[in-house]
């Protein structure tokens, strides 16, 4: 009897997972379809980009056929699909290397920045949001709301330029653009692509500190924006939870106030906050285009911008797919975490 029950449950779980995977597959297919269509709609002639505008009509036609552009659209899409699934995004016109390789090279720089920025957002934003909610209407609440509002409304490129002007040009407290100082550049061979990890692996501590030093300004700026979002959401989740009756129960039991706040109320906020943090991390991966441009940060954002400016469609679409897939992955991950942490969602 019990065996039968567990078997039934197993079947149910398997079905659930299958359904989940199917949904992911459909979403991914949608992403590919959209990038493919964008690639066909934009008024850039991919053939012209390869053969140049001085090529004869014959050469042009041959290139067109070689690229499969004479086939019907659905066949083109299938070819595109199969090549993308093999990790082949085509060759970048700009770097003359496979786009996939390019992305692998630049992506760690973006990850490094986004990761540190999100850490900043979590460790500053969450306590700030919680304190604001607890001392609602108090001085700190007003300060954090103004700071958060500025984070919401200030354009990041302006703030980045201002920060560079003050802390780099005028005060000379922090280093300027780039991942490391020029004379350290290229010393460490990239293994993981993360400068902080690579320099430790190579035993180059001087470079490690220099890289960290270079990370402070862009990571704090990006982190400021994710902090604004996270603290705002934390505040509203906490206000909602502190109103609940189980909070009164905890107080009646004689539980210390900090435990009521961080144990009981925050325990219930942590679940929706997973999604908030995941989404803000995802947004940093794609949204650091401006920051990377200003800080000359050789990441995905800068790569994407350069490709765009040079009409390098393969690179642009490839990067878009990568960013989209990561976003999808983050969403899946947060969904799974949700099920782990919320007993009601199991």
């Amino acid at each position: 009897m019990t065996q039968f029950l567990t078997q039934k449950r197993l079947k149910k779980t398997a079905l659930k997972i299958l359904k989940f995977l199917l949904m992911v597959a459909i979403t991914f297919l949608g992403l590919l379809l959209i990038t493919f269509l964008i690639g066909r709609v934009v008024p850039i002639d991919p053939v012209l980009a390869v053969v140049g505008d001085k090529a004869s009509h014959e050469v042009y036609e041959r290139a067109r056929i070689a690229m499969g552009l004479n086939l019907p659209l659905w066949q083109q899409f299938l070819i595109y699909l199969s090549s993308v699934l093999r990790g082949d995004f085509g060759t970048s016109v700009l770097t003359a290397k496979p786009v996939f390789e390019d992305i692998l090279r630049v992506f760690p720089a973006t990850m490094e920045l986004a990761f540190l920025a999100t850490l900043f957002g979590i460790f500053v934003g969450i306590p700030l949001g919680v304190i604001s909610a607890v001392k609602r209407g108090g001085f700190l609440d007003h300060v954090s709301r103004v700071v958060g509002l500025l984070g919401y409304s200030l354009p990041i490129f302006w703030l980045a330029l201002l920060a560079l002007m003050i802390f780099y040009a005028k005060l000379d407290l922090l280093p300027g653009p780039g991942r490391v100082d020029v004379f350290y550049d290229g010393i460490v061979t990239p293994v993981t692509g993360f400068m902080l990890i690579d320099s430790i692996l190579a035993g180059e501590w001087e470079i490690f500190w220099n890289a960290l030093y270079h990370l402070i300004m862009p990571a704090t700026l990006l982190g400021y924006f994710s902090m604004a979002y996270i603290s705002r959401m934390t505040r509203s989740f906490m206000i909602e939870q502190l109103r609940q009756e189980y909070i009164l129960t905890a107080r009646v039991k004689g539980v210390a106030e900090w435990k009521v706040i961080w144990g009981h109320a925050f325990g219930n906020c942590a679940i929706p906050l997973i999604t908030v943090v995941a989404l803000s991390f995802g947004a940093l991966l794609e949204g650091s285009v401006l920051t990377e441009t200003i800080f000359a940060w050789p990441g995905l954002g800068l790569y994407l911008t350069n490709s765009l400016l040079n009409a390098d469609m393969n690179a642009v679409l490839g990067s878009t797919i990568v960013v989209g897939s990561i976003f999808l992955g983050i969403n899946i991950f947060s969904d799974i975490l949700y099920k782990v942490f919320d007993p009601r969602a199991r």
Partner: peptide, 21 residues
């Protein structure tokens, strides 16, 4: 005093128990 000396049972256990513990 709270809990140890004076305690309180509230109306609806649906709301007065912490849902994630």
């Amino acid at each position: 005093i709270r809990g140890k000396e004076i305690s309180m049972v509230m109306q609806d256990p649906k709301y007065s128990l912490n849902p994630v513990r």
